[in-house]
């Protein structure tokens, strides 16, 4: 089953990359679709980020003040805005989490 899903989603993913390179489709997608697709990365990635930061991995409840991930993520967001570098953002976030987990 997993192989079937993997290959099916793989073919779909290839289709999303190839579709506009195929000669069958000669026009750009309509502007409203381009607008909507432009929000796909930030919407999807935010939906992954927020639960990974806010929910306690142990019991999936919302954790705020006693949550080192939240503060580490806040520092990582600042690092991302200032440096715009992936490696710095990951480094700042991970080191902050290690220090906070040790201290809290």
């Amino acid at each position: 089953m997993i192989w079937f899903i993997m290959i099916a989603t793989g073919l779909f993913t290839f289709a999303t990359r190839f579709i506009m390179l195929s000669n069958g489709i000669s026009n750009r997608p309509p502007p409203w679709l381009v607008d909507a697709l432009g929000f796909v990365p930030i919407a999807v990635l935010t939906a992954i980020i927020v639960p990974a930061i806010l929910l306690d991995p142990a019991d999936q409840t919302i954790a705020l003040w006693d949550n080192p991930r939240l503060f580490a993520a806040a520092l990582a967001i600042i690092a991302a805005l200032v440096t715009r570098q992936m490696i710095t953002t990951i480094g700042v976030g991970l080191v902050a989490l290690w220090i906070l987990q040790w201290a809290m």
Partner: peptide
């Protein structure tokens, strides 16, 4: 597990999303 390496996943996505908002 104490390295919390899986936290690198949301961090990677933060690095993608934050600068393009």
């Amino acid at each position: 597990d104490s390295w919390s390496l899986s936290f690198a996943i949301p961090l990677t996505f933060i690095a993608v999303v934050a600068p393009i908002l």
